[in-house]
């Protein structure tokens, strides 16, 4: 088992955002977390690599528990792709990708750049390597940030609504990169309402509501025969192109 999430709780003041969430992931699996907004999906994702500290619960990666002591080492195994990209503004695209290997994985400058060009090629951005983030389109920025994650050669990538800051015509290029990664066997946990990715690449859909998992299963089951009324109602809304 690659990832084990055990009984995660998180509150902000009186608001209990996560009420005990548990699930596992095997290597090579892709899972998509769906559910109405405000239901704790992004908080859950951030709790998994402790960008947000959970109040309770445990996260194990490769059998090793994430603690405050091994945090930085563990985060190198669990990459994170942000909704709003967060590329490093002062660095060219290729340096955004190279900085992880250079500063954290002990690569020398040349090796780090070689790897960075390789990862940019993987997301189809070789020709934009010398551009600064502000010179890239949103879709290009998100693909660059995926390349930055890949350059850490992580065991798992967490995607936090990777297409929701993008114009509709730009989501396709990001989704196709994600589909490709999934087919190459990358382990991916994705918070997204991107039906295309969920249907094509996900092994399992996790449906959350009110800080809990209320239904989970393969896409065929969730999309064709959801067990819960709430899941059915929600899917109805997003399948018809609306926003919940």
């Amino acid at each position: 088992m690659l990832l084990r999430v055990e009984n995660i709780h998180k509150s902000y003041g009186d608001a209990e955002i996560l009420k005990g969430v548990s699930f596992d992931m095997e290597p090579g699996q892709s899972k998509v977390i769906m559910g109405p907004s405000g239901t704790g999906k992004s908080t859950l994702l951030r709790c998994i690599n402790h960008l947000t500290e959970p109040d309770q619960g445990h996260v194990f990666v490769d059998g090793e528990e994430l603690t405050s002591k091994n945090l930085n080492a563990m985060r190198q195994k669990v990459a994170f792709v942000f909704q709003d990209f967060n590329l490093f503004t002062h660095l060219r695209t290729v340096d955004n990708v190279a900085i992880g290997p250079r500063k954290l994985r002990g690569f020398d400058k040349k090796a780090a750049l070689d790897l960075a060009y390789q990862e940019l090629d993987r997301v189809g951005l070789s020709d934009r390597a010398d551009a600064y983030p502000a010179e890239l389109s949103g879709g290009q920025q998100q693909r660059a940030s995926i390349a930055r994650a890949l350059a850490m050669e992580p065991k798992l990538i967490l995607f936090d609504e990777p297409t929701s800051a993008l114009d509709p015509e730009l989501t396709g290029e990001v989704v196709s990169v994600m589909n490709k990664l999934a087919s190459e066997g990358m382990t991916m946990l994705v918070v997204s309402h991107e039906i295309g990715f969920a249907r094509q690449a996900a092994d399992e859909i996790i449906f959350m509501e009110g800080g809990k998992i209320i239904e989970q299963g393969p896409p065929s089951q969730i999309f064709e025969a959801p067990q819960q009324d709430r899941t059915r109602a929600f899917l109805n809304v997003i399948e018809h192109g609306g926003h919940e």
Partner: peptide
């Protein structure tokens, strides 16, 4: 923007490393 430090930390940088490099 706070996202810059968040991205540095998410890569595995410590707080001082993120401050210095990013």
């Amino acid at each position: 923007p706070v996202g810059q430090m968040a991205a540095a930390r998410a890569l595995g940088m410590g707080q001082f490393q993120g401050f210095k490099n990013i």
